[in-house]
């Protein structure tokens, strides 16, 4: 059994290919990128690309507030899709408590996803070419009938979501968007805590030393490139997109 389905890996541990893509300023998420970027190996090397969107056929999240909103939308799409699959086919012998938690998370994440679509569409004044498209997902051999796999995946998704919002806050310039991100990230943190306790009841894992620094009491914060590299490594997201204009 695969214990940890999604891992937030340090960049060094990524495959050579991913590392190359990242160093080349070409972080791309989604399985299709292997085709779309196949000629990068020969040409661009380590040079930063001055073209903000060198692959016009692949959606780029954009920069600034728009980039952050699209980034959040991508992560919320993943969470919403994952929990939709979870609640449509709960694993066997699920407890009432776990069913309640996972059902709540499903509603929250679907709401977040739909909110970002609406908010971004409004922000770009209807220029839908700037809105991240609806992504497709594939969970490979993840067994949705296996409690440990479902909860472990949920835990990693929630932990990653919190770290992503924490790391993206400084990239936001509009105080209204910052407040909205704040309203959502604390709910993600509440989720992360609950799932962690379901996995290890009675422990200190709800805000565990693996996630919160013991000397300063700070939860994780990660840059988009690190988060997207890790998410990309899961293979869950099938629709390629790039984040060339986010750190």
């Amino acid at each position: 059994m695969r214990k940890s389905i999604v891992k937030v890996k340090p960049v060094e541990k990524a495959t050579n290919r991913r590392q190359f893509l990242k160093l080349g300023g070409m972080g791309v998420v989604g399985a299709g990128l292997l085709v779309a970027c196949s000629n990068d190996d020969n040409g661009m090397g380590m040079m930063p690309d001055p073209d903000p969107n060198p692959n016009p056929d692949i959606f780029d999240l954009g920069q600034g507030d728009l980039g952050v909103l699209n980034y959040a939308y991508a992560l919320e799409q993943l969470e919403a899709d994952f929990y939709t699959k979870v609640v449509n086919s709960f694993y066997a012998n699920i407890s009432d408590e776990e069913m309640q938690v996972l059902t709540d998370l499903y509603y929250h994440e679907v709401n977040h996803r739909d909110f970002f679509k609406t908010a971004i569409t409004a922000a770009v004044e209807g220029n839908t070419e700037l809105v991240l498209p609806t992504l497709e997902f594939d969970y490979g051999d993840l067994d949705f009938n296996n409690r440990e796999q479902v909860l472990t995946t949920a835990s990693v998704l929630e932990d990653t979501g919190v770290a992503a919002y924490n790391g993206a806050g400084r990239l936001i310039s509009n105080p209204g968007y910052l407040l909205l991100a704040g309203k959502i990230v604390s709910v993600e943190a509440r989720h992360a805590s609950a799932i962690r306790t379901l996995l290890n009841p009675g422990s200190a894992d709800f805000a565990g030393d693996d996630y919160v620094t013991t000397d300063t009491g700070l939860a994780a914060a990660l840059d988009p490139s690190v988060v997207l590299s890790a998410v990309g490594d899961t293979g869950f997201i099938q629709t390629p997109f790039t984040a060339n204009n986010l750190p």
Binding site: S186, R190, S193, A207, A219, A220, A221
Partner: peptide, 17 residues
């Protein structure tokens, strides 16, 4: 800002538990 957000998330994890 970033450390404040990091503390904010920890308070939320506490609150949930």
């Amino acid at each position: 800002l970033t450390p404040a957000l990091q503390i904010h998330a920890v308070e939320a994890m506490h609150a949930s538990e």
